[in-house]
Structures are given as C-alpha cells and as structure tokens.
Amino acid sequence: MKFVLEVTVDEDAPARDRAGELGRILRYWGGNLHHYALEPGDGSAVYDAAYQEVGAWRVVSS
C-alpha cells in the first residue's frame, strides 16, 4: 500500500508558523490513525487549526 498526504501551507507565513501548523496536522492525524483501516480507497480531508480544509490523505495500491 501507499499512503499519500498532501497539504497546502501558507507560503506567506513565516517558516516557523508553517512548520508548526504542519506539525500540528501530523500529530492530529497520527493520533487518530487507529480509527482507519488503512486500506486502498481510504482517505479523508485534512484541516488546519482554523478548521479550513488544506489538503487530504489517501491510501492507494502501490
């Protein structure tokens, strides 16, 4: 299987803020990993701290 995570971060934000937001997204997703079967076809939207959709993850066949 292949896990794909795509997130768009604010290019105008300082690098520290971008890294912080991406870290928060990864921690949140990682903490909820047990809720997913992680089989091809699984996926979900990814949201930032302001609950704005900023990307998505998906599982595909490798």
Rank of each mutant, 00 (worst) to 15 (best):
K2S: 09
F3W: 08
F3N: 06
V4I: 12
E6N: 08
E6W: 06
V7H: 00
T8A: 10
V9Y: 04
V9A: 01
V9Q: 01
D10Y: 02
E11T: 12
E11R: 13
D12C: 14
A13C: 12
A13Q: 12
P14T: 14
A15K: 09
R16E: 11
R16Q: 11
D17P: 03
D17W: 04
A19F: 07
E21C: 06
E21Y: 05
E21L: 11
L22R: 04
L22A: 02
G23Q: 06
R24I: 11
I25F: 05
I25C: 01
I25T: 00
I25S: 02
L26M: 10
L26C: 05
W29G: 02
W29S: 04
W29L: 14
W29F: 12
G30R: 12
G30A: 15
G31Y: 11
N32T: 14
N32L: 15
L33D: 15
Y36D: 14
Y36I: 10
L38N: 09
E39I: 13
G41Q: 09
G41V: 10
G41Y: 13
D42H: 11
D42Y: 07
D42M: 07
D42F: 08
D42R: 04
D42T: 08
G43P: 00
S44G: 11
S44F: 06
S44E: 05
A45M: 01
A45K: 04
V46P: 00
V46W: 01
D48V: 05
D48T: 03
A49W: 12
A50N: 14
A50P: 03
E53Y: 09
E53P: 14
V54A: 12
G55F: 10
A56Y: 08
A56D: 11
W57I: 07
W57T: 02
W57L: 11
R58W: 06
V59Q: 00
V59E: 01
V59K: 00
V60H: 04
S61M: 10
S61L: 13
S61N: 07
S61V: 14
S62V: 00
S62M: 00
S62Y: 00
S62C: 02
